[in-house]
Computed example of a mutant assay.
Amino acid sequence: MKDVRKLLFPFAILYGIVTGIRNFLYNRGIFRAFSFDIPVIAVGNLSTGGTGKSPLTEYLVRLLKDSYSVATLSRGYKRSSKGFVLADDAATAATLGDEPYQFHLKFPDIQVAVDADRVNGITRLLSLPDKPGVIVLDDAYQHRRVKAGLYILLTAYGDIYADDLILPAGNLREGRSGAKRADIIVVTKCPPDLALKEQENITRKLKPQMHQKVYFTCIAYDEWVYSGEGSIKVTDVKPQDKVLVAGIAKPEPFFSFLKNDTDHCLTYPDHHNFTASDIEAIINKSDNRIIITTEKDYTRLKGSLPADKLFYLPIKSSFVKDAGDFDKTILEYVGKSTGNR
């Protein structure tokens, strides 16, 4: 695979030139970027997924929602609807996309919207009678038409952008220099006990600008798995024979956390739309055993599999250290922006 990607390097150079010109035109103001009289936080990455944007977006929602009226705005990847959609009681994973629908189910007291055109999406949110006080843009780092007030760039431990190349030779959507736009860099999916020395080594490789702060997070798994009819402690479910189902970018940690030697692990592409044949295969493989999936996949599988057999495992972003400093940085930005309105 690495040899094949080396052959694609000339195309990566061409792709880098195109994205570089686009960024240059936005940086010089030749392409117009729209700013808004409201705190806007953009969460994103340089690579093509798998960095943990959703858990970090949820972390921000939890941090802000008790003090501010919060909205999330996403593209709504692989949804069946078009244009601007605001989540309501009729929303589904099909109309919103799996991750926004997950936000809607988990945080019913916030506004969840989708629109591929983020400028239009923000404008529509601000035209609502109960318009939000803070907007969190999910996966919007390359959406340069919106000039956010705070940019949070994510990069995954063991796969940091400093070691990667531009598509198609690597996985970067734009050159590494794009990291300079970030106010905060978060290295995600770290070991919980990541040594300070290794944190320092990674920070040196990332070469942050003077104004940038670097933080390290890990995935914290819930102590329970949940279904539409109840819950089971993870410690009780781990020894059981079960089927694990994941349609996410990097499912290995999910499988490793739950599986035992007798389990069956079924892997599907990220954001996979499960077909009737997929559902039949999962049912046949389960043979009346419980099925555990990710929270994102649960939004697409519920209703298609027996409610008493289908469970999901929630996750959260947890800071290896300096969580208080991260929270303070976010709250100071939102508070200052709100106060200046």
Rank of each mutant, 00 (worst) to 15 (best):
T57W: 05
D138G: 07
Q111C: 13
P314C: 01
N171F: 12
D287G: 12
N288R: 14
E252R: 08
F254N: 03
T294K: 00
G121F: 03
P314H: 01
K197G: 08
T123R: 14
V146A: 06
F84Y: 10
P253T: 00
L266G: 03
D183S: 11
I291E: 06
K78C: 02
I330P: 01
L25H: 06
F326P: 05
R62L: 10
A246Y: 02
D109H: 09
V114I: 07
N340D: 14
N201T: 15
K336Q: 13
I291Q: 04
K302D: 11
G49A: 06
E295P: 07
P129Q: 03
D98H: 01
E280C: 11
V119A: 04
D163Q: 13
G76D: 03
D89S: 15
L125F: 11
Y268Q: 01
K302I: 10
V114A: 06
D183P: 12
N284A: 15
N27V: 10
D278T: 02
K285C: 15
D159N: 14
F257M: 05
D66Q: 10
Y141D: 02
A113E: 04
Q240P: 10
C218W: 14
F34H: 14
N284I: 14
L258H: 00
K328S: 13
V18C: 13
G178Q: 03
D236V: 04
K53M: 09
P314F: 01
L8Y: 13
I17T: 14
T329M: 13
D130G: 12
T19P: 02
I184P: 11
Y101K: 10
V136A: 07
K82T: 11
N340R: 13
M210L: 14
L46I: 05
A116D: 15
I292P: 04
A42G: 08
D109M: 02
N120T: 07
V186S: 09
D115L: 11
S81P: 04
G228V: 07
D109R: 03
W224K: 15
D236R: 07
F34Q: 15
Y141H: 06
I248C: 04
V237F: 08
K316L: 09
V70I: 02
V146C: 07
C265L: 03
V112R: 01
M210N: 15
D37E: 11
R341Y: 10
D37M: 12
T19N: 02
G52E: 02
S177C: 14
K207R: 13
R300G: 11
T51D: 02
V40T: 05
I315L: 01
L137Q: 03
T217V: 05
N45G: 08
R22S: 11
L64N: 04
L150S: 03
G121L: 00
V214Q: 10
A140Y: 02
P168F: 04
D115R: 12
E174V: 01
P269E: 04
G121R: 00
N201E: 15
